[in-house]
Amino acid sequence: MTTTTLARAINDGLRHALSNDPSVLLLGEDIGRLGGVFRVTDGLRADFGADRVVDTPLGEAGIVGTAVGLAMRGYRPVCEIQFDGFVYPAVNQIITQLAKYRHRSDGRIAMPVVIRIPYGGGIGSIEHHSESPEAYFAHTPGLKVVTCATPDDAFTMIGQAISSDDPVIFLEPKRRYWSKGAVTDAPSLGLHRARTVRDGSDLTLVAYGPLVTPALEVARVAEEEGHSVEVIDLRSLAPLDTATVIASVLRTGRLVVAHEASRTHGIGAEIAARVQEEAFYALEAPVLRVTGYDTPYPPSRLEEEWLPGVERMLAAVDRSLAH
């Protein structure tokens, strides 16, 4: 067991995959010589060569489109999109091609492609550098969408994503890149399973990616106030591990969902719908959402209050418990 940052854990996971499978290669802007703007691919070009850690021209559609072609030739490309807000030029390739190739080929052509995207806010950055685009991808059949919250999961999940025979959107919570944690080699959960990160009996709080850390803080504060909050790290947004969430709600009767992405038509809405379908009579209170607002991401001087944090989550917990 070693202690490392989340960024370093992904680097280790990529190194592991490159070492073990010669069909794995990395594609992206500035990922080679520079090691990526967040240094996630630091040192990999030196060790695996420019043919496997490819500094691409500046074109996101080109990165994903060529990954589709490489997959057809038997490769397992891992693409890096430099920032969340820059993925949109690639969306045509992701939605019309990458997500559909298995289906349109009657199952003959697999697309083992990973698209890594640093996402979310909280780092004081400029426009287009703090977005949470997960719902667009989670709404697209054929794609899988996952996100890690800890270095341990980052290491394990990047390896699982690369091994997947389906395309995976791999969302990296950029404000947690420098968070340290233990990385183990212990067998982990499947890529598409949620994890209960704190047991509780009064209320279920579901979060993922950057909000798992504040959700745990919420549970700690609530405990001081005499409330037992169960925290679930969703980990996989498509497919959703609804079984874990529903089992929890059947026990607690209360649910709060938190995400940075804007509210309407978001992941929280889908979870609320599933829970009312399958745990309707167990609910003691309406399902509440704590999310980013339905606005474009604000200037960074406003982001601390705009983002859902401990205070807004605690307020939602109180509202739920008041029922």
């Binding site: 080109g62 489109g65 060529t66 990954a67 072609g69 390739q93």
Partner: peptide
């Protein structure tokens, strides 16, 4: 869309 797939496939050949 297929132009990029052909190019990626050629990257694989190389």
């Amino acid at each position: 869309a297929q132009t990029l797939h052909g190019v990626g496939y050629a990257m694989g050949i190389v």
